[in-house]
Structures are given as C-alpha cells and as structure tokens.
C-alpha cells in the first residue's frame, strides 16, 4: 500500500475534496467526498495548521519555511501549500521519503487544469460569510478532475 488518502483544503480551512482508499488490493475502493470524513478532515487540518505555525515560529530569517512531511508511528503525511492558500495533503506509508513531485503534479496538471482554468467551476468554494469561516461543505464534483486524479493516483495505491 503506497498511499492511503488525499485531501484538498482551501484558504477558508474548508476541505473541498477528499479521497480515501480503504482496500490495499483494489485501487477503486474507498470513498470520494465522504460525509463521514468531515471530522477527520478537521483534525487533519488542525494538525497540519498547528505544525505549520510551529515551523514558522522556529524558522530563521525571512525565507519561507514550510512543512514537507510529518511522520507518525503508522503513516506519513505529505503537504504541499500553494501561494493561494490551497493545501494538498497526502497520507502515505513509509516506503517513499518524498511525494512533493506527486503533489506538485496534481496541482499544476490536474487542479489548475480542471478547476482554476475551468470557467464553470467555482474558483472560491465558499459562498457566504459562514462558509468563509470554515463551515463550508461544498466539494469539488467536477468529473474530469476526479477521473484524471484517479487515473494519476491509482497506480500508487497498491505499490
């Protein structure tokens, strides 16, 4: 099993996309944008957020210091933060040290292509005041995005 789950958070602390694989054998298993994952998403966001604030406090000079990966006893979290405040988070096992290139590819070739460049997709997923404050529930439902993401990440599931 290479990767366990993939998450996107927007700048309003909302989880706008989540994909979790539950079976090692099948790369089509698992859930997309599941309601059950809402709590998990909040925990994950909080964890990465806390560690980012620690990291920034401990950084030296004015150079940006960002979290790359977080290892725990059971899994590893890889993060990729864009300038617009969108986070890409990937939960994996320990076989590979760095998934930065993978996340970069997801951002530049899939997210930008199907979400940012798509006039019909909302650019900002929060519509009103409360959704701006982390209460948002809107998700990315674009089929092209989900399909190409699946096609790109699925080979890594059973690694």
């Amino acid at each position: 099993m290479g990767i366990y789950s993939f998450w996107i958070f927007d700048k309003h602390c909302n989880c706008i996309f989540d994909r979790e694989w539950t079976l090692t054998s099948s790369s089509s298993s698992g859930t997309i944008n599941s309601k059950q994952n809402e709590e998990t998403a909040k925990l994950l966001y909080g964890m990465v957020y806390s560690l980012r604030s620690i990291t920034q406090k401990l950084s030296k000079g004015s150079i940006k210091n960002d979290v790359r990966s977080i290892s725990t006893g059971k899994y590893r979290i890889h993060t990729y933060c864009t300038a617009t405040g969108v986070w890409f988070v990937l939960l994996t096992d320990f076989k590979q040290q760095s998934y930065t290139q993978v996340l970069q590819h997801v951002y530049s070739h899939i997210y930008v292509k199907f979400i940012s460049n798509n006039l019909f997709s909302p650019y900002d997923f929060a519509d009103n005041e409360s959704e701006m404050r982390g209460q948002g529930t809107r998700k990315i439902t674009n089929k092209n995005f989900i399909d190409s993401l699946n096609a790109f990440l699925s080979p890594m599931v059973g690694q």
């Binding site: 560690l51 620690i54 990291t55 401990l58 950084s59 030296k60 150079i63 940006k64 210091n65 960002d66 979290v67 790359r68 990966s69 977080i70 290892s71 725990t72 006893g73 059971k74």
Partner: peptide
C-alpha cells in the same frame, strides 16, 4: 511511539 508523531520535515529543519 507507535501512533504519535515521530518526525516533522520542513524546508529548514
């Protein structure tokens, strides 16, 4: 340390 945090990699440390 079986389920807690073990390592945090950043750009500087």
């Amino acid at each position: 340390n079986k389920s807690g945090l073990r390592q945090l990699c950043t750009d500087q440390f």
